[in-house]
Design a protein around this nucleic acid. Structure first.
Lengths: 205, 205
DNA sequence: GCCTGCGCATGACAACTGTCATGGGTCAAA
DNA sequence: TTTGACCCATGACAGTTGTCATGCGCAGGC
């Protein structure tokens, strides 16, 4: 082979679905200028891999066990390794948090496979890559919920009764009802179920 | 290359996330004995591809727009094309429905990437491939819900009030409450939210 | 220092939800 | 043809949920 043998872009991939992880790695390895130096199954593994491999780029999913990709991104903020978040979800809250965590890219799994390698190259060149679907301002919509409201809503949306939520958080039942009521109001919902659905769809839960 | 050039196993892949679709295709194309003859983004496209390409094997995701992978499997039941369902979810209801739809394989995306090609070969040889995690009898647990109960629960779990569900289904509010009550009882839940969560986790919703 | 936002609480009322008893109808299988 | 499963309905009751007014304490911004 007469490959010019320039230094390849060194990449670590984090993704909790083994099959997808392997497939994405195979995809990137096919590119002559990219090398996958480690594969991680969760956020913690991703962190370790970044610390030991010092890759140019970390490609990470968001929803993973142990530690989310967003938390991992936060942990390596300021590092020389740049982060590209690759996720299923077009949620404003996710994008916002990714940006706050210093990510250089936010790509949806709904995009064609070839865009991944492109994104790697662009980010390596110092550019930012935001999925076009998410690029508009509207997507940066701020999360209106307070921490407590979020906590309460999360538990309630798992099916816990007001009473059960109160016990778990050491609050009075009335207080829990107040928080839920506020959350429902802020989200323009009619009940806790709708509120949870809306919050989740925006990436606020 | 001195490839013996035997006939390759002809495969169609259906998966709604473009990036994953492309990556899986790349993964399989790397195998010398497998050829991806078409890529589908939803169940309808999968059906068309199977009709026109007459592949040996259809690899399909379940949750897709237009038509689920399970429905697609049902539609080509009896065909010479064998079906391997590849999904994120270890839900008994999904496995059961896949089997009833005549699928030859049920594989989780949590499995290593190399198992996909293995599964393709085994199924091509006439074998069945069921993910080990799903193989036990317990997973075949039957869905206790009636059609109406399922419908009502689904709508209610989206946040619709009893009244709203009743309107949508042209039922009286009381009837809806009865169905929900039965569903909650059958699933051992304490309220509609928990009931929906349980049903969903089993693949019954 | 004063205001604002947040956390937490209570009480009261109205609305919604879950349960139960009871009864009607259809349809398929035994 | 009888039984059983499913569909649909009503009414009544208790329990849960959502709303609102009101209040206290605490921290950060101005």
């Amino acid at each position: 082979m007469s490959t010019p043998e320039k230094k390849r872009i060194r990449v670590v991939i984090a993704e909790d679905q083994e099959m997808v992880l392997g497939a994405l790695a195979a995809l990137l390895e096919m590119e002559g200028d990219i090398s996958v130096v480690a594969q991680a199954r969760d956020g913690k593994q991703a962190l370790e891999a970044v610390r030991t491999q010092r890759p140019d780029i970390l490609i990470t999913d968001i929803e993973m066990p142990e530690m989310t990709g967003l938390d991992a991104a936060n942990a390596i903020k300021g590092d020389t390794t740049r982060v590209i978040v690759v996720t299923t979800f077009a949620r404003p809250g996710y994008l916002r948090r990714a940006m706050e965590a210093g990510a250089s890219g936010y790509l949806l799994k709904a995009r064609p496979a070839r865009e991944l390698a492109d994104a790697v190259r662009r980010v390596h060149r110092g550019l930012r890559v935001i999925d076009p679907e998410l690029a508009s301002e509207a997507w940066m919509e701020a999360d209106p919920l307070t921490d407590r409201e979020r906590q309460v809503l999360r538990l309630a949306s798992d099916g816990a009764s007001t009473e059960a939520v109160a016990k778990k958080l050491n609050l009075s039942a009335g207080t829990v009802r107040n928080y839920l009521s506020e959350a429902i109001d802020k989200l323009g919902a009619n009940n806790r179920i709708e509120a949870a659905r809306i919050a989740r769809s925006k990436g606020w839960l």
